[in-house]
Amino acid sequence: MTNYISTAIAGLSLAIGVAAALPAAAQDLPSNLRIVIGSTSTGGDTYQNSSIIADALAAELGINIKVDAVGPAEGFKALGRDSSGSTMMIFHDHAYLGELYGVRGFDNIFEDYRVGPTVSINPGNAYAVPKNSPYQSMDDIFQAAADGTRVRVAIQPGGVSEIGFSAMKNAASVLNPGSEANIVAMNTGSQSDKDQLLFDGQADVINASIQSNEQYTQLPADDQKAMRFVWLTAREATIQGANPEGMGAMTRDDMLKYVSPTTSVTLDGSEDFTFDKEFFFIYNKDMDPALVEAIDTGLAAVFDKGDVQNTLKASFFIPNFLPSAEAQAHLSEKRATYEKVISAIGSE
């Protein structure tokens, strides 16, 4: 009996010791944390990214984290209901672009929620044309619009897919005022819908991604499915952060040909428009600041160890940890830039 008691006391002491060793802030976190994401897909980049971060963070903090793919509307509702810190959200720039484009269910995340740390970037946002398209570059597209040719761009409205389209219209407006009217949106849904519009000849340009469409660029030009990238929206520095082998047959050097400054989509005649699809945390506005600090500290420790960077890079994400305060300033600045673009051309 005495042995049992001794063992129990030893175990308890060990548990107390381990708990004491944890960062003070981590102890404030609930032991079961739910991360809702702004996508209903468990096959997409938001889920993949969130899973990688959640696994690393759970191991670092010694808590359970579950990622639920509930979509933006239900995600924001869940976040709004829970200020205890048991529910957090991971989403990307769509979170504020949806609001800028006036999509229902999207509020100003900087006012109605609390923006948390950024964790990574998906550098793959791209625009593609059929391989036998007359448009060899973005310059050709802007010239065609200036010459009065209608250029149809397949996008999913209201978010990441549309911001590049808005940038194209804005650039056309800067380069040849009035020509932006010839760049028109073909609003559609998923990537397969956009691809299908290209296959059907109902779109001249589609919003695409390196991950989904790179293999199509390897097909011979006489294949109905063959595509060619004309623009990657990411910053040059972002692409420089990718592994040299890139993705598929497209090396990092190949990618750099499609980003600014080599490929230019002007913002205002002097500077190029760029867009990185960044993933970041969003919290309930009233969540305890100690918990914000705990997540910042936990993520800093995760990124200090360096393993998560390798995992992210292997999945073609660019690690990009910024603590909450820096992330808020950075994303707020991005939002302001894109707000100007959208209001300059008006959303379609």
Partner: peptide, 15 residues
């Protein structure tokens, strides 16, 4: 299922 490929870093496409 696409997610399973993505998680393993495998591209799924025409090739």
């Amino acid at each position: 299922l696409i997610g399973a490929f993505t998680l393993q870093g495998i591209q799924v496409g025409p090739l």
